[in-house]
């Protein structure tokens, strides 16, 4: 489904990603962990098509298409979804209005019929249950004045509405209490299918008790320096990153 080969990317001339390789197949869940500033969000942003990041080397194919060749909206329409680490507040645009525009543009691209107001509202109601999001938030401006937890829930709600095939959750668990974490994970798990895949970026193994990964990767200094099964996350929880850093930094001296 997703194939990343030797991906290098920089921002304002500073290299951040220095040769990422990753293969993701339908149905898989990949966790990406790593110390602060290692490039996790950069990888997520590059996949979603953020223009500030310049890809200097490598390739990414998504369902056979050159992903890097597509603009951000077409990536979303093709089925890539990024749940933002820091969802943006957009005053003046109501959540409902925004989502209706998004859903219909995605549907148009996929050759599906447009949803009228009634159908859209019933779809919304159905998906709102999934993440137990408050109806009141829907008429408010997008993310404006939402609490941290509400913003994260809103990301998963949008994911449910857009039905992506590849979801990238960038620290969707950070800052959530255990109840909210359960609700969000439950939403993600219900959306999982043999046809779609998930990348979860996280600092906390706690999340991985709920969303169980098939693979865990450690990103450090712009490279995936270690990959393993879900037990790797437990090791990291216990031992931290120092042993990995030493390995990597020691080897490069």
């Amino acid at each position: 489904m997703l194939s990343i080969k030797n991906l290098h990317a920089s921002i304002e001339g500073t290299p951040i990603l220095k040769g990422i390789n990753l293969e993701i197949k339908p149905g898989e869940v990949h966790a990406i962990m790593g110390p602060n500033g290692s490039g996790k969000s950069t990888l997520a942003s590059v996949l979603a098509g953020r223009e500030e990041y310049e890809v200097t080397e490598g390739e990414v194919t998504f369902n056979g298409k050159d992903l890097l060749d597509l603009n951000p909206e077409d990536r979303a329409r093709e089925g890539v979804f990024l749940a933002f680490q820091y969802p943006v507040e957009i005053p003046g645009v109501s959540t409902t209005n925004f989502l209706r525009t998004a859903v219909n543009q995605v549907r148009e691209y996929r050759g599906q019929e447009q949803l009228d107001a009634v159908k859209f509202l019933s779809l919304m109601k159905e998906k709102m249950k999934l993440v137990e999001i408050d109806q009141k938030l829907m008429s408010r401006a997008l993310n404006e004045g939402f609490s941290g937890g509400e913003k994260k829930r809103n990301e998963i709600f949008q994911m449910a509405m857009l039905e992506p095939t590849l979801s990238i959750l960038d620290e969707t668990d950070s800052g959530l209490d255990i109840d909210a974490l359960r609700i969000v994970s439950n939403g993600v798990n219900q959306l999982k299918s043999p046809d779609n895949a998930t990348i979860v970026v996280t600092h906390y193994q706690r999340l991985l008790d709920y969303i169980v990964p098939d693979f865990v990767h450690v990103l450090y200094k712009g490279r995936i320096v270690k990959s393993g099964s879900k037990e790797l996350a437990l090791d990291l929880e216990e031992k931290g990153y120092d042993w990995i850093k030493e390995d990597v930094d020691g080897a490069s001296v």
Partner: peptide, 14 residues
Amino acid sequence: DEALFYLQARGIGK
């Protein structure tokens, strides 16, 4: 720009 990217990332044309 960030708001623009956020909307685009949801499939809304630029």
